[in-house]
Each structure stands twice: as structure tokens, then as C-alpha cells.
Design a protein around this nucleic acid. Structure first.
Lengths: 247, 247
DNA sequence: CGAAAACTTGACCCAACTCAACGAACGTGG
DNA sequence: CCACGTTCGTTGAGTTGGGTCAAGTTTTCG
């Protein structure tokens, strides 16, 4: 993965969210940056600390956002994958309010934070694309609050699986109906407000009912519509329609 | 409430989030708008529909954001009060992904959406203030996901009460230690992922333990630190420090 | 190959839910 | 300003989804 191709990916991502002209793209391709790798579980951002001097753009691998209670129980509030910008949520905030950790081995492009802020200001179309990206993730937070607050264990987990499938397909990472879920059952529990033990039972129940097939962490959907119904899943909140910008 | 004073309030709100110059303020004060009132439970935004031509700025009263499952159970994902901009979450999105309803009788200033988008583009400092406002609410969504996913009923409800107290004080609506919570116990349940019945029992338990005093919907905090401890509440996620902008 | 991490399963428990009834407060119209 | 219907709050009894604890088993990885 060369430096140039990282910025090309970034330009492609932002261009899919808002119409960009040649100058916008040129400004993106001129961003100061460097490549970086994280091990699984490594922290990219820590709650309570000021944001660092750089913003991470995921080239490969997965990351997750997480908060903890005083008793140490953890809630994962969203998952990020290749093509996601991790620091837009706090580009203009003074303190981080949550943690970001690598879920798998993670390859990122570190963009200079000041340069990104300047870019948003000087190239409004790029700034809007960044805004849209951040707003879509805010929508995901809302859906997760609904998921965790009002669905039962089976629907919660099925919903997570559906979101993963939909986003990975949209990001070009996975093809239809089959992918590897890069999470332990304990992490699935942290994302759904359940315990690892109950996640295990629920996944087995979903498989026993023929909704999914499991092999290690590889998941296959036997019947997308049945899983979708069990999950109460609608992709509306992912705003995939933003990919076809209005004039 | 005159029209002019509504825009002055808006300028004050945005000015508290980012440093604005005289031209920024002038541009805010020139925004096309009109005053509007909503009855309790009236819808301002409906999931699945494109955002309207206007953006609402709350002058008085309370609103809430809400999503529902297919079975009809509802999750309130945040509460808004005087001084809040309601439509920033979808200023650049094509479809609304959640509902917004009036919680009480609500007075708003309706700002022209296109004018607000143009303002964000032409006056970057104003655009950044709007971004910051939207990002702070995204932080609230994350905290609510943690609240609903990982705290027990007592902490969840205490947390909601603490957030309300803190935000109302910051917004200048309530003074220390006492305010009216403009929600039914059923609505508190929808915000915390509990049933109205259990909210009732938990509120009474909090009162019985001397943490709070209740009179109708008026709430008093007997001992802020004890409630805060029971709630596992830290105001970090509200980003009140943004009010003192950096240079 | 061996240790650590992840997954699986069973037995038991409890926080929160459901259902149901009733009392209190509110607002609305006559 | 009172009557009354409706919404909201309160309480009890019984149920249950998911948690806890504990002991294997399998997989991963150095």
C-alpha cells in the first residue's frame, strides 16, 4: 500500500459522499500524512485526552469505538472498517469522550489534523463530505441505542450481523451472503449489551434455526430476508443513498 | 418573543461554540426565518421522509428524538431544549433516519435550510460552530448507548436526571438542584430502555433512599455527589468546555 | 507443542417485565 | 368552577430473558 493510493482512496470515499471538483481532489491528494499499523486492541484514541495531531483513515482492518462504566463494563458504540475516517467525530472538539481501539490488525493513513481542518474550511465541498460522513456515523449511534434499548438478544445480534454484511458489501470488502466477523463473542456482547455466554447461546440458536451458517468466525446468511426480518433491519439509517449526490 | 431576539439567541449559541466575528454574527442575524409553535407530541421530523425546507431552533420548550422497532417499541435517543438546533443531524442528508417530536409545547424559529447550508459554506466559523453542535449531540448518542446497554435501571435513570440537570443549568433554564422533568414515566422508560412500571419503582426507590425529592414532575437533588455516583455520571461527554473556544 | 484465549454447556438466580387493578391529577366543556 | 373522562402514576403477584458461576473443550498462536 503506497502513500499515494491511500489518498486516492480517501478522495474516492469523500467523492462518494459529496460532489467534488478537480481542485477538491487535488487538495485531498496533497494532504500531509503517513502510513501506520496497529496491533489488535491497540488504542488509537483515549477518552479524557485531547485529540492527537493526526486523524486516522482506515486502509485495511477494523476498529471500534468504546465507552466504559465505572464498574468496568464496556459498551462498543460502533465498528469502523476500511474507508472510514476515525476522527471526524472530534475534529473540532477539545477532549475525546470515547476510546477507539483496533479490532484487528489495522492499517491506517495518519492525516495531519490541522491540515484536515484547513481543508474543510478552504474546500467547502470536502468539508461537507466530511460532515456527511460524521452524520452517518451519528445515525449509526442512534440505531445502536435503539438496538440495545429495545430489541431482544436474538434481534440485537441479528441486527449487528445485518449491519456488518451491508456495510462490508457497500465498502467492497465482502461479497453477498458471506463474510468473516472479526469479533470475539465477548466483543459481540459488548456491542449488543449482552454477555459473551448469552451471545454464544443466541448465535447457536440462530444457526439451529437455519438463519445463519457458522464456521469459526465466518458467517453465511442462509436467507437474507429471514435474517433481516428477525433483526428488524432496515438499511435506511446507513444512508447509502448519499453515494449518489444531488446536483 | 420577537423574531430578532430569536436570531440573537442563535448567534449567542453558535458564538459559545466557536469564535465568531462581526460578519459571522451579521450573517446569522440576516437568516430568513419565522416563528412557529408545536403542541406536545407533534412531529417535527418523520423517519423515512426527506428533511423539510426549514431547520428548527428551539426558543422554549422541549423536544425529543425517537426511533421505533417493527413491533412498535420506542427508544428515545436524545432530548433537546431551548437553544438547541434540531436539524443539524441531517442538514446534508437526503432522508431522515429518526423522528423528532415535541415533548412539551414548543416554540421554535424555523430557519431556511438552504440559507443555513449557504451560511455554513460562506462563513466557515459559523459552519464549524454548527459542526461542533452536531458532534456534541453525537457524543450524547454514544453515552446513551452506554447507558442503555451497560447500566442497571437505577443508574440509567439517575444518569438521565443528571444529564438533564447539567444541560438545563448550562442552558440557563434551571438553577441548581431543582427542575421540572417534562416527561411522563413512560417516556423516561423509552429513554432508558425500561418499562414505565419499572421507572416508577426505581424513582420511588431513589426517593426512598434520599437521593432525590419528588413533587409531581419536579425533582430536587438531595446530594448531587451521591446522585452522580449512583448514576456513574461524568459531564465530560457534554463538552461544556467548548464554550471557552481556543484561539 | 504448550499456554492462553476463545468457545461451549449446564445449573441456578435475579432484575426487570407482564398483567391487572386502582388512585391521583389533569384538562376540557358545559 | 365543577363534572367527568382521560392520562398518568402506583402497587401487587407472578413470570422470564438474560445474567452468573463454573467447568470443560476447542482453537489459536508463539
Amino acid at each position: 500500500m503506497s502513500d499515494a493510493s491511500a489518498l486516492i482512496k480517501l478522495a474516492g470515499k469523500l467523492g462518494s459522499l459529496n460532489r467534488l471538483d478537480a481542485e477538491d481532489r487535488a487538495a485531498i491528494l496533497a494532504l500531509p500524512h503517513r502510513m501506520r499499523t496497529y496491533d489488535p486492541a491497540a488504542y488509537l484514541v483515549r477518552e479524557g485526552q485531547p485529540p492527537g495531531k493526526h486523524c486516522s483513515f482506515i486502509i485495511a482492518g477494523f476498529a471500534f469505538r468504546q465507552k466504559q462504566t465505572a464498574q468496568g463494563t464496556r459498551q462498543i458504540v460502533s465498528i469502523n472498517m476500511a474507508g472510514d475516517l476515525l476522527d471526524l467525530q472530534q475534529l473540532f472538539l477539545k477532549i475525546s469522550d470515547h476510546n477507539i481501539q483496533a479490532l484487528t490488525r489495522l492499517e491506517t493513513a495518519e492525516l495531519d489534523r490541522a491540515a484536515l481542518r484547513a481543508l474543510a474550511r478552504e474546500r467547502p465541498a470536502v468539508g461537507e463530505a466530511m460532515w456527511i460522513d460524521a452524520m452517518i456515523e451519528a445515525s449509526i449511534f442512534r440505531e445502536w441505542a435503539l438496538n440495545v434499548g429495545r430489541r431482544d438478544a436474538r434481534a440485537r445480534i441479528a441486527h449487528l450481523l445485518c449491519e456488518f454484511a451491508t456495510r462490508m458489501k457497500a465498502a467492497g470488502i465482502a461479497t453477498d451472503g458471506r463474510y468473516e466477523l472479526p469479533m470475539t463473542q465477548e466483543q459481540i456482547g459488548d456491542a449488543t449489551g449482552l454477555t459473551g455466554v448469552h451471545v454464544n447461546r443466541t448465535l447457536r440458536s440462530l444457526a439451529a434455526d437455519g438463519l445463519i451458517h457458522r464456521d469459526r468466525r465466518f458467517l453465511g446468511f442462509a436467507d437474507w430476508d429471514r435474517v433481516r426480518a428477525a433483526a428488524d433491519f432496515s438499511a435506511l439509517y446507513l444512508h447509502l443513498d448519499q453515494s449518489a449526490p444531488e446536483g
